[in-house]
Design a protein around this nucleic acid. Sequence first.
DNA 1: TCATTGCCTGACCAATCGGTCAGGAGTTCT
DNA 2: AGAACTCCTGACCGATTGGTCAGGCAATGA
Lengths: 223, 223
Amino acid sequence: MTQGSAPAEREAREQGEASGVTRLRNEREILAAAERVFARYGYRGASLQAIADQAGLPKSNVLYYMGSKRGLYVRLLERMMERWNALLDDISVEDDPAEVLEAFIRSKMQLSRRHPEGSRLFAAEILGGAPFLQEYLRGELRDWVRARARIFEQWAERGLMDPVDPVWLIFLIWSATQHYADFEAQVLGITGRDALSDADVEEITTFLTRVILKGCGVRPQVD
Amino acid sequence: MTQGSAPAEREAREQGEASGVTRLRNEREILAAAERVFARYGYRGASLQAIADQAGLPKSNVLYYMGSKRGLYVRLLERMMERWNALLDDISVEDDPAEVLEAFIRSKMQLSRRHPEGSRLFAAEILGGAPFLQEYLRGELRDWVRARARIFEQWAERGLMDPVDPVWLIFLIWSATQHYADFEAQVLGITGRDALSDADVEEITTFLTRVILKGCGVRPQVD
DNA sequence: TCATTGCCTGACCAATCGGTCAGGAGTTCT
DNA sequence: AGAACTCCTGACCGATTGGTCAGGCAATGA
Protein backbone atom coordinates (compact mmCIF):
# COMPACT_ATOMS: atom_id res chain seq x y z
CA MET A 1 0.00 0.00 0.00
CA THR A 2 1.38 3.41 0.94
CA GLN A 3 4.91 2.69 1.86
CA GLY A 4 8.06 4.69 1.64
CA SER A 5 7.85 6.25 -1.81
CA ALA A 6 8.62 9.48 0.00
CA PRO A 7 11.48 8.93 2.42
CA ALA A 8 10.60 11.67 4.90
CA GLU A 9 11.75 10.97 8.40
CA ARG A 10 12.38 7.65 9.97
CA GLU A 11 9.74 6.58 12.37
CA ALA A 12 12.46 5.02 14.47
CA ARG A 13 11.87 7.72 17.02
CA GLU A 14 10.16 6.18 19.94
CA GLN A 15 8.34 8.32 22.39
CA GLY A 16 7.65 6.11 25.32
CA GLU A 17 7.27 2.49 24.37
CA ALA A 18 3.93 2.32 26.16
CA SER A 19 2.31 4.59 23.58
CA GLY A 20 3.55 2.41 20.74
CA VAL A 21 1.96 -0.57 22.40
CA THR A 22 -1.33 1.29 22.74
CA ARG A 23 -1.22 2.26 19.10
CA LEU A 24 -0.72 -1.31 17.97
CA ARG A 25 -3.40 -2.60 20.27
CA ASN A 26 -5.92 0.03 19.17
CA GLU A 27 -5.17 -0.66 15.53
CA ARG A 28 -5.69 -4.38 15.99
CA GLU A 29 -8.86 -3.75 17.97
CA ILE A 30 -10.27 -1.50 15.24
CA LEU A 31 -9.46 -3.98 12.49
CA ALA A 32 -11.08 -6.83 14.39
CA ALA A 33 -14.17 -4.79 15.18
CA ALA A 34 -14.45 -3.54 11.61
CA GLU A 35 -14.17 -7.06 10.25
CA ARG A 36 -17.07 -8.16 12.42
CA VAL A 37 -19.26 -5.20 11.52
CA PHE A 38 -18.50 -5.20 7.79
CA ALA A 39 -19.07 -8.96 7.64
CA ARG A 40 -22.43 -8.68 9.32
CA TYR A 41 -23.85 -5.60 7.61
CA GLY A 42 -21.91 -5.24 4.36
CA TYR A 43 -19.98 -2.17 3.28
CA ARG A 44 -22.90 0.24 3.08
CA GLY A 45 -24.76 -1.19 6.02
CA ALA A 46 -21.78 -0.91 8.37
CA SER A 47 -21.34 2.34 10.28
CA LEU A 48 -18.18 3.81 11.72
CA GLN A 49 -20.08 4.43 14.93
CA ALA A 50 -20.83 0.70 15.29
CA ILE A 51 -17.19 -0.14 14.60
CA ALA A 52 -16.01 2.42 17.12
CA ASP A 53 -18.42 1.10 19.75
CA GLN A 54 -17.22 -2.47 19.16
CA ALA A 55 -13.63 -1.34 19.51
CA GLY A 56 -14.38 0.73 22.60
CA LEU A 57 -13.04 3.93 21.05
CA PRO A 58 -14.52 7.24 19.94
CA LYS A 59 -15.50 7.43 16.29
CA SER A 60 -12.97 10.19 15.66
CA ASN A 61 -10.20 7.89 16.77
CA VAL A 62 -11.21 5.27 14.22
CA LEU A 63 -10.97 7.89 11.50
CA TYR A 64 -7.69 9.14 12.91
CA TYR A 65 -6.18 5.66 12.57
CA MET A 66 -7.82 4.56 9.34
CA GLY A 67 -8.43 7.73 7.39
CA SER A 68 -11.76 6.80 5.89
CA LYS A 69 -14.43 4.11 5.83
CA ARG A 70 -13.42 3.07 2.34
CA GLY A 71 -9.74 2.86 3.27
CA LEU A 72 -10.50 0.72 6.28
CA TYR A 73 -12.63 -1.62 4.19
CA VAL A 74 -10.00 -1.98 1.47
CA ARG A 75 -7.35 -2.68 4.05
CA LEU A 76 -9.45 -5.49 5.51
CA LEU A 77 -10.03 -6.97 2.08
CA GLU A 78 -6.32 -6.89 1.34
CA ARG A 79 -5.54 -8.57 4.63
CA MET A 80 -8.00 -11.33 3.78
CA MET A 81 -6.53 -11.76 0.29
CA GLU A 82 -3.09 -12.14 1.85
CA ARG A 83 -4.38 -14.92 4.08
CA TRP A 84 -5.94 -16.52 1.05
CA ASN A 85 -2.81 -16.27 -1.05
CA ALA A 86 -0.77 -17.76 1.76
CA LEU A 87 -2.35 -21.16 1.16
CA LEU A 88 -2.17 -21.02 -2.60
CA ASP A 89 1.01 -23.00 -2.73
CA ASP A 90 2.35 -24.32 -5.97
CA ILE A 91 1.69 -27.86 -7.08
CA SER A 92 3.08 -29.90 -9.93
CA VAL A 93 1.85 -32.67 -12.20
CA GLU A 94 4.13 -35.06 -10.38
CA ASP A 95 2.31 -34.64 -7.07
CA ASP A 96 -0.23 -37.13 -5.85
CA PRO A 97 -3.77 -35.96 -6.67
CA ALA A 98 -5.29 -37.41 -3.53
CA GLU A 99 -2.70 -35.74 -1.36
CA VAL A 100 -3.06 -32.38 -3.09
CA LEU A 101 -6.84 -32.35 -3.12
CA GLU A 102 -7.07 -33.33 0.52
CA ALA A 103 -4.57 -30.66 1.51
CA PHE A 104 -6.53 -28.18 -0.58
CA ILE A 105 -9.83 -28.98 1.11
CA ARG A 106 -8.25 -29.08 4.54
CA SER A 107 -6.39 -25.79 4.32
CA LYS A 108 -9.39 -24.02 2.83
CA MET A 109 -11.55 -25.37 5.62
CA GLN A 110 -9.07 -24.16 8.20
CA LEU A 111 -8.99 -20.70 6.66
CA SER A 112 -12.77 -20.42 7.00
CA ARG A 113 -12.50 -21.85 10.48
CA ARG A 114 -9.75 -19.54 11.67
CA HIS A 115 -11.12 -16.38 10.10
CA PRO A 116 -14.89 -16.70 9.91
CA GLU A 117 -15.43 -12.94 9.97
CA GLY A 118 -12.95 -12.41 7.18
CA SER A 119 -14.56 -15.19 5.23
CA ARG A 120 -17.96 -13.56 5.61
CA LEU A 121 -16.51 -10.17 4.73
CA PHE A 122 -15.22 -11.66 1.50
CA ALA A 123 -18.58 -13.31 0.83
CA ALA A 124 -20.46 -10.06 1.37
CA GLU A 125 -18.12 -8.31 -1.04
CA ILE A 126 -18.75 -10.90 -3.76
CA LEU A 127 -22.46 -10.96 -3.02
CA GLY A 128 -22.62 -7.23 -3.67
CA GLY A 129 -21.02 -7.65 -7.09
CA ALA A 130 -17.37 -7.47 -5.95
CA PRO A 131 -17.03 -3.71 -6.57
CA PHE A 132 -13.62 -3.62 -4.88
CA LEU A 133 -12.30 -7.01 -5.98
CA GLN A 134 -13.03 -7.11 -9.72
CA GLU A 135 -9.39 -6.59 -10.56
CA TYR A 136 -8.18 -9.33 -8.23
CA LEU A 137 -10.72 -11.81 -9.54
CA ARG A 138 -10.00 -11.14 -13.21
CA GLY A 139 -6.25 -11.14 -12.70
CA GLU A 140 -4.36 -12.90 -9.97
CA LEU A 141 -7.06 -15.35 -8.97
CA ARG A 142 -8.02 -16.24 -12.54
CA ASP A 143 -4.42 -17.09 -13.36
CA TRP A 144 -4.15 -19.26 -10.28
CA VAL A 145 -7.30 -21.16 -11.20
CA ARG A 146 -6.11 -21.72 -14.76
CA ALA A 147 -2.77 -23.05 -13.63
CA ARG A 148 -4.41 -25.53 -11.28
CA ALA A 149 -6.97 -26.49 -13.89
CA ARG A 150 -4.24 -27.43 -16.32
CA ILE A 151 -2.68 -29.75 -13.78
CA PHE A 152 -6.02 -31.39 -13.03
CA GLU A 153 -6.46 -32.00 -16.75
CA GLN A 154 -3.04 -33.61 -16.97
CA TRP A 155 -3.90 -35.85 -14.07
CA ALA A 156 -7.04 -36.88 -15.93
CA GLU A 157 -5.00 -37.64 -19.04
CA ARG A 158 -2.77 -39.86 -16.98
CA GLY A 159 -5.80 -41.67 -15.63
CA LEU A 160 -5.27 -40.49 -12.08
CA MET A 161 -8.75 -38.97 -11.91
CA ASP A 162 -11.95 -38.67 -13.95
CA PRO A 163 -11.95 -36.09 -16.77
CA VAL A 164 -14.17 -33.65 -14.92
CA ASP A 165 -14.11 -29.93 -15.65
CA PRO A 166 -11.40 -28.69 -13.28
CA VAL A 167 -12.88 -25.21 -12.88
CA TRP A 168 -16.23 -26.52 -11.69
CA LEU A 169 -14.31 -28.80 -9.35
CA ILE A 170 -12.46 -25.88 -7.82
CA PHE A 171 -15.72 -24.00 -7.36
CA LEU A 172 -17.24 -27.06 -5.74
CA ILE A 173 -14.45 -27.21 -3.20
CA TRP A 174 -14.61 -23.49 -2.54
CA SER A 175 -18.34 -23.44 -2.03
CA ALA A 176 -18.44 -26.53 0.16
CA THR A 177 -15.71 -25.29 2.49
CA GLN A 178 -16.79 -21.66 2.58
CA HIS A 179 -20.32 -22.68 3.45
CA TYR A 180 -19.57 -23.47 7.06
CA ALA A 181 -18.32 -19.97 7.73
CA ASP A 182 -20.70 -17.95 5.57
CA PHE A 183 -23.86 -19.89 6.40
CA GLU A 184 -22.87 -20.59 9.97
CA ALA A 185 -26.19 -19.26 11.21
CA GLN A 186 -28.05 -21.73 9.02
CA VAL A 187 -25.83 -24.67 9.97
CA LEU A 188 -26.20 -23.96 13.67
CA GLY A 189 -29.93 -23.32 13.43
CA ILE A 190 -30.60 -26.58 11.63
CA THR A 191 -28.25 -28.79 13.59
CA GLY A 192 -29.35 -27.16 16.84
CA ARG A 193 -25.85 -26.43 18.08
CA ASP A 194 -24.39 -23.38 19.74
CA ALA A 195 -21.15 -23.63 17.78
CA LEU A 196 -19.18 -26.05 15.67
CA SER A 197 -16.54 -27.88 17.69
CA ASP A 198 -13.10 -28.85 16.43
CA ALA A 199 -14.39 -32.41 16.22
CA ASP A 200 -17.30 -31.29 14.03
CA VAL A 201 -14.95 -29.47 11.70
CA GLU A 202 -12.70 -32.51 11.49
CA GLU A 203 -15.67 -34.72 10.72
CA ILE A 204 -16.90 -32.36 8.00
CA THR A 205 -13.44 -32.16 6.48
CA THR A 206 -13.20 -35.94 6.36
CA PHE A 207 -16.66 -36.17 4.83
CA LEU A 208 -15.90 -33.59 2.14
CA THR A 209 -12.54 -35.15 1.31
CA ARG A 210 -14.03 -38.61 0.97
CA VAL A 211 -17.02 -37.58 -1.14
CA ILE A 212 -15.15 -35.22 -3.45
CA LEU A 213 -12.15 -37.48 -4.01
CA LYS A 214 -14.35 -40.47 -4.68
CA GLY A 215 -16.68 -38.33 -6.74
CA CYS A 216 -14.04 -37.38 -9.26
CA GLY A 217 -12.38 -40.75 -9.29
CA VAL A 218 -9.26 -40.01 -7.30
CA ARG A 219 -8.06 -43.12 -5.55
CA PRO A 220 -6.79 -42.45 -2.06
CA GLN A 221 -3.04 -42.65 -1.90
CA VAL A 222 -1.69 -46.20 -1.94
CA ASP A 223 1.82 -46.75 -0.71
CA MET B 1 -31.80 6.43 -13.00
CA THR B 2 -33.87 4.11 -15.13
CA GLN B 3 -37.42 5.20 -15.69
CA GLY B 4 -39.39 2.19 -16.70
CA SER B 5 -42.76 3.81 -17.21
CA ALA B 6 -43.67 7.22 -18.51
CA PRO B 7 -45.93 9.17 -16.16
CA ALA B 8 -48.33 9.86 -19.02
CA GLU B 9 -48.95 6.19 -19.51
CA ARG B 10 -49.57 5.77 -15.85
CA GLU B 11 -52.02 8.65 -15.71
CA ALA B 12 -53.95 7.34 -18.69
CA ARG B 13 -54.70 4.04 -17.06
CA GLU B 14 -54.59 5.15 -13.51
CA GLN B 15 -58.01 6.00 -12.30
CA GLY B 16 -59.97 4.13 -14.89
CA GLU B 17 -61.26 0.64 -14.51
CA ALA B 18 -57.73 -0.58 -15.09
CA SER B 19 -56.51 0.99 -11.84
CA GLY B 20 -56.21 -2.47 -10.37
CA VAL B 21 -53.78 -3.29 -13.12
CA THR B 22 -51.58 -0.32 -12.27
CA ARG B 23 -51.63 -1.25 -8.64
CA LEU B 24 -50.55 -4.79 -9.36
CA ARG B 25 -47.85 -3.66 -11.74
CA ASN B 26 -46.46 -1.10 -9.29
CA GLU B 27 -46.45 -3.65 -6.52
CA ARG B 28 -44.57 -6.14 -8.65
CA GLU B 29 -42.14 -3.45 -9.76
CA ILE B 30 -41.42 -2.45 -6.16
CA LEU B 31 -40.89 -6.04 -5.05
CA ALA B 32 -38.51 -6.72 -7.93
CA ALA B 33 -36.56 -3.51 -7.32
CA ALA B 34 -36.40 -4.17 -3.58
CA GLU B 35 -35.14 -7.70 -4.14
CA ARG B 36 -32.29 -6.38 -6.25
CA VAL B 37 -31.34 -3.63 -3.82
CA PHE B 38 -31.62 -5.74 -0.64
CA ALA B 39 -29.64 -8.55 -2.29
CA ARG B 40 -26.85 -6.20 -3.26
CA TYR B 41 -26.55 -4.07 -0.13
CA GLY B 42 -28.11 -6.13 2.65
CA TYR B 43 -30.95 -5.00 4.89
CA ARG B 44 -29.19 -2.08 6.53
CA GLY B 45 -27.26 -1.04 3.47
CA ALA B 46 -30.33 -0.83 1.28
CA SER B 47 -32.21 2.47 1.17
CA LEU B 48 -35.84 3.07 0.31
CA GLN B 49 -34.69 5.86 -1.99
CA ALA B 50 -32.60 3.42 -4.05
CA ILE B 51 -35.53 0.99 -4.22
CA ALA B 52 -37.90 3.76 -5.29
CA ASP B 53 -35.47 4.95 -7.97
CA GLN B 54 -35.12 1.40 -9.32
CA ALA B 55 -38.89 1.05 -9.42
CA GLY B 56 -39.37 4.46 -11.02
CA LEU B 57 -41.65 5.68 -8.24
CA PRO B 58 -41.43 8.30 -5.50
CA LYS B 59 -40.21 7.08 -2.16
CA SER B 60 -43.52 7.92 -0.52
CA ASN B 61 -45.29 5.59 -2.89
CA VAL B 62 -43.08 2.70 -1.86
CA LEU B 63 -44.00 3.32 1.76
CA TYR B 64 -47.65 3.71 0.81
CA TYR B 65 -47.63 0.26 -0.74
CA MET B 66 -45.36 -1.55 1.68
CA GLY B 67 -45.82 0.22 4.99
CA SER B 68 -42.24 0.08 6.17
CA LYS B 69 -38.75 -1.01 5.18
CA ARG B 70 -38.90 -3.91 7.58
CA GLY B 71 -42.27 -5.05 6.29
CA LEU B 72 -41.07 -4.96 2.71
CA TYR B 73 -37.99 -6.98 3.62
CA VAL B 74 -39.95 -9.60 5.53
CA ARG B 75 -42.40 -9.92 2.66
CA LEU B 76 -39.53 -10.59 0.26
CA LEU B 77 -38.07 -13.19 2.58
CA GLU B 78 -41.41 -14.93 2.87
CA ARG B 79 -41.83 -14.95 -0.89
CA MET B 80 -38.42 -16.57 -1.22
CA MET B 81 -39.24 -19.15 1.42
CA GLU B 82 -42.40 -20.04 -0.48
CA ARG B 83 -40.39 -20.63 -3.63
CA TRP B 84 -38.03 -22.76 -1.59
CA ASN B 85 -40.77 -24.78 0.02
CA ALA B 86 -42.35 -25.40 -3.36
CA LEU B 87 -39.51 -27.71 -4.29
CA LEU B 88 -39.34 -29.50 -0.97
CA ASP B 89 -41.53 -32.33 -2.13
CA ASP B 90 -41.89 -35.45 -0.08
CA ILE B 91 -39.81 -38.51 -0.75
CA SER B 92 -40.00 -42.04 0.60
CA VAL B 93 -37.55 -44.82 1.33
CA GLU B 94 -38.92 -46.70 -1.65
CA ASP B 95 -37.77 -44.06 -4.14
CA ASP B 96 -34.60 -44.48 -6.14
CA PRO B 97 -31.73 -42.57 -4.46
CA ALA B 98 -30.11 -41.61 -7.76
CA GLU B 99 -33.35 -40.23 -9.09
CA VAL B 100 -34.14 -38.28 -5.93
CA LEU B 101 -30.67 -36.83 -5.49
CA GLU B 102 -30.46 -35.76 -9.11
CA ALA B 103 -33.89 -34.14 -8.95
CA PHE B 104 -32.83 -32.46 -5.72
CA ILE B 105 -29.66 -30.99 -7.24
CA ARG B 106 -31.42 -30.04 -10.44
CA SER B 107 -34.38 -28.25 -8.86
CA LYS B 108 -32.16 -26.43 -6.39
CA MET B 109 -29.95 -25.32 -9.25
CA GLN B 110 -32.95 -24.07 -11.17
CA LEU B 111 -34.19 -22.13 -8.18
CA SER B 112 -30.88 -20.28 -7.94
CA ARG B 113 -30.95 -19.82 -11.68
CA ARG B 114 -34.48 -18.49 -11.89
CA HIS B 115 -34.29 -16.23 -8.85
CA PRO B 116 -30.69 -15.13 -8.45
CA GLU B 117 -31.65 -11.94 -6.61
CA GLY B 118 -33.85 -13.84 -4.21
CA SER B 119 -31.07 -16.33 -3.68
CA ARG B 120 -28.63 -13.56 -2.86
CA LEU B 121 -31.18 -11.89 -0.61
CA PHE B 122 -31.44 -15.12 1.36
CA ALA B 123 -27.66 -15.45 1.47
CA ALA B 124 -27.26 -11.90 2.77
CA GLU B 125 -29.81 -12.59 5.48
CA ILE B 126 -27.95 -15.71 6.64
CA LEU B 127 -24.59 -13.97 6.36
CA GLY B 128 -25.84 -11.29 8.75
CA GLY B 129 -26.78 -13.90 11.34
CA ALA B 130 -30.31 -14.61 10.07
CA PRO B 131 -32.01 -12.11 12.40
CA PHE B 132 -35.35 -12.51 10.62
CA LEU B 133 -35.13 -16.22 9.81
CA GLN B 134 -34.04 -17.81 13.08
CA GLU B 135 -37.49 -19.22 13.68
CA TYR B 136 -37.79 -20.71 10.20
CA LEU B 137 -34.34 -22.32 10.41
CA ARG B 138 -34.89 -23.84 13.83
CA GLY B 139 -38.39 -25.03 13.01
CA GLU B 140 -39.72 -25.82 9.59
CA LEU B 141 -36.39 -26.23 7.83
CA ARG B 142 -34.81 -28.29 10.60
CA ASP B 143 -37.70 -30.73 10.54
CA TRP B 144 -37.42 -31.05 6.78
CA VAL B 145 -33.70 -31.77 6.99
CA ARG B 146 -34.20 -34.39 9.69
CA ALA B 147 -36.89 -36.18 7.70
CA ARG B 148 -34.65 -36.35 4.64
CA ALA B 149 -31.68 -37.38 6.73
CA ARG B 150 -33.56 -40.34 8.10
CA ILE B 151 -34.37 -41.53 4.59
CA PHE B 152 -30.75 -41.18 3.50
CA GLU B 153 -29.72 -43.29 6.47
CA GLN B 154 -32.21 -45.99 5.55
CA TRP B 155 -30.87 -46.01 2.02
CA ALA B 156 -27.41 -46.50 3.46
CA GLU B 157 -28.65 -49.39 5.59
CA ARG B 158 -30.07 -51.01 2.49
CA GLY B 159 -26.73 -50.62 0.75
CA LEU B 160 -28.04 -48.18 -1.81
CA MET B 161 -25.45 -45.57 -0.87
CA ASP B 162 -22.44 -45.08 1.39
CA PRO B 163 -23.12 -44.41 5.07
CA VAL B 164 -22.21 -40.73 4.88
CA ASP B 165 -23.61 -38.17 7.30
CA PRO B 166 -26.83 -37.10 5.58
CA VAL B 167 -26.86 -33.60 7.05
CA TRP B 168 -23.41 -32.78 5.73
CA LEU B 169 -24.53 -34.18 2.39
CA ILE B 170 -27.52 -31.85 2.28
CA PHE B 171 -25.29 -28.89 3.14
CA LEU B 172 -22.88 -29.93 0.41
CA ILE B 173 -25.65 -29.89 -2.18
CA TRP B 174 -27.02 -26.58 -0.92
CA SER B 175 -23.66 -24.87 -0.95
CA ALA B 176 -22.61 -26.20 -4.35
CA THR B 177 -25.83 -25.15 -6.05
CA GLN B 178 -26.24 -21.84 -4.26
CA HIS B 179 -22.70 -20.87 -5.15
CA TYR B 180 -23.47 -20.03 -8.74
CA ALA B 181 -26.04 -17.43 -7.77
CA ASP B 182 -24.41 -15.98 -4.67
CA PHE B 183 -20.84 -15.90 -5.97
CA GLU B 184 -21.84 -15.11 -9.54
CA ALA B 185 -19.45 -12.17 -9.63
CA GLN B 186 -16.56 -14.46 -8.72
CA VAL B 187 -17.57 -17.16 -11.20
CA LEU B 188 -17.90 -14.67 -14.04
CA GLY B 189 -14.70 -12.85 -13.13
CA ILE B 190 -12.63 -16.03 -13.06
CA THR B 191 -14.13 -17.71 -16.10
CA GLY B 192 -14.08 -14.44 -18.01
CA ARG B 193 -17.71 -14.63 -19.11
CA ASP B 194 -20.42 -11.99 -19.21
CA ALA B 195 -23.08 -14.38 -17.98
CA LEU B 196 -23.73 -18.07 -17.51
CA SER B 197 -25.66 -19.54 -20.43
CA ASP B 198 -28.30 -22.22 -20.16
CA ALA B 199 -25.74 -24.62 -21.58
CA ASP B 200 -23.27 -23.69 -18.83
CA VAL B 201 -25.87 -24.28 -16.16
CA GLU B 202 -26.76 -27.65 -17.68
CA GLU B 203 -23.08 -28.61 -17.77
CA ILE B 204 -22.58 -27.61 -14.15
CA THR B 205 -25.69 -29.50 -13.09
CA THR B 206 -24.45 -32.62 -14.83
CA PHE B 207 -21.03 -32.22 -13.25
CA LEU B 208 -22.42 -31.78 -9.74
CA THR B 209 -24.81 -34.69 -10.12
CA ARG B 210 -22.08 -37.01 -11.37
CA VAL B 211 -19.53 -36.08 -8.71
CA ILE B 212 -21.90 -36.06 -5.77
CA LEU B 213 -23.74 -39.26 -6.67
CA LYS B 214 -20.51 -41.09 -7.31
CA GLY B 215 -18.97 -39.49 -4.24
CA CYS B 216 -21.50 -41.00 -1.88
CA GLY B 217 -21.73 -44.31 -3.64
CA VAL B 218 -25.06 -43.95 -5.36
CA ARG B 219 -25.11 -45.92 -8.57
CA PRO B 220 -26.86 -44.06 -11.39
CA GLN B 221 -30.30 -45.46 -12.14
CA VAL B 222 -30.26 -48.59 -14.25
CA ASP B 223 -33.51 -49.43 -16.01
C1' DT C 1 -74.24 19.62 -7.53
C1' DC C 2 -71.41 18.60 -3.43
C1' DA C 3 -69.45 15.37 -0.01
C1' DT C 4 -67.07 11.16 0.34
C1' DT C 5 -63.64 7.84 -0.69
C1' DG C 6 -59.31 5.90 -2.07
C1' DC C 7 -54.82 6.58 -4.45
C1' DC C 8 -50.92 9.16 -4.41
C1' DT C 9 -46.90 12.49 -3.25
C1' DG C 10 -44.13 16.86 -2.00
C1' DA C 11 -42.65 18.78 2.08
C1' DC C 12 -41.03 17.95 6.25
C1' DC C 13 -39.07 15.58 10.65
C1' DA C 14 -35.62 13.72 14.05
C1' DA C 15 -31.88 10.66 13.80
C1' DT C 16 -27.82 9.06 11.87
C1' DC C 17 -24.38 8.98 8.26
C1' DG C 18 -19.08 9.83 6.93
C1' DG C 19 -15.91 13.21 7.57
C1' DT C 20 -13.51 17.78 9.23
C1' DC C 21 -11.34 20.63 12.48
C1' DA C 22 -9.77 23.28 16.33
C1' DG C 23 -7.74 22.47 20.24
C1' DG C 24 -6.40 19.74 24.71
C1' DA C 25 -2.91 16.52 26.71
C1' DG C 26 1.60 14.82 27.06
C1' DT C 27 6.69 14.49 25.51
C1' DT C 28 10.86 15.89 23.79
C1' DC C 29 14.05 19.24 22.09
C1' DT C 30 16.27 23.78 22.23
C1' DA D 1 10.62 28.21 30.07
C1' DG D 2 8.64 27.76 25.71
C1' DA D 3 8.50 25.98 21.02
C1' DA D 4 7.49 21.87 18.40
C1' DC D 5 5.53 17.65 17.69
C1' DT D 6 2.41 13.59 18.08
C1' DC D 7 -1.79 11.49 19.79
C1' DC D 8 -6.32 12.00 20.54
C1' DT D 9 -11.38 13.71 20.73
C1' DG D 10 -15.73 16.67 21.40
C1' DA D 11 -18.23 19.56 18.64
C1' DC D 12 -19.79 20.31 14.44
C1' DC D 13 -21.00 19.96 9.19
C1' DG D 14 -23.94 18.92 5.06
C1' DA D 15 -26.05 14.88 3.28
C1' DT D 16 -28.97 11.02 3.78
C1' DT D 17 -31.76 7.85 6.51
C1' DG D 18 -36.77 5.75 7.52
C1' DG D 19 -41.02 7.52 8.29
C1' DT D 20 -45.19 10.98 8.83
C1' DC D 21 -48.67 13.91 7.22
C1' DA D 22 -51.56 17.26 5.09
C1' DG D 23 -53.46 17.80 1.11
C1' DG D 24 -54.07 17.22 -4.23
C1' DC D 25 -56.45 14.59 -7.62
C1' DA D 26 -60.02 11.77 -9.93
C1' DA D 27 -64.03 8.80 -9.57
C1' DT D 28 -68.27 7.67 -7.17
C1' DG D 29 -72.73 8.10 -4.50
C1' DA D 30 -76.22 11.26 -3.24
